[in-house]
Amino acid sequence: MSNGADLIRQMAEGDAEAFARFYDRYAPLIYPLILRILPDPTDAAECLQDVFWESRQRARTYDAERATPDAWLVTQARERAIDRMRGARRRRDAAPLGTSPRPRLAEATAPLERSAAVDRSVLMRAFERLPDPQREALELAYYGGLTQTEITARLKQPLGTVKTRLRLALDRLREMVKPT
């Protein structure tokens, strides 16, 4: 069975079969993350399609020295999902007042009710094992796509505090999920 890096190399050569196998292997693992960021299933499915097509188009530039196939794909998936979420947020913000609810903190951190599979994800469990202030900051950044300045405004905490919480959260996360 080919590993992820082999499949990416074959995809880069235009191997349609390798592309299908790459999708079969990774799509069910990536989809929960996209759903977490884009709760609307139509949005999430479109995003998933974009992510995989883009991964095929960019396969030639994949560098196994720089990222594992997992990290390569998850980074793309998260970026695309957050781009879409921001686009939707901008459109919603541009709507006349009263026609659409303003984005709320809860939207970025709302627990996902749709899928038990998502709720059980190791990532969420890892997040849950963080102290609340660290988890809150990390969820706003990872799922909400907010920057340190935006998180500072949301949480009404000093910038230095937000940076420290994120740093500690990510240090702990690295420890929690590091290969054994």
Binding site: V74, R78, L123, M124, L173, M176, V177
Partner: peptide, 11 residues
């Protein structure tokens, strides 16, 4: 680490 955690959950 984020990728590993994200992809380790049930599909």
């Amino acid at each position: 680490a984020l990728a590993r955690a994200a992809m380790a959950g049930p599909p």
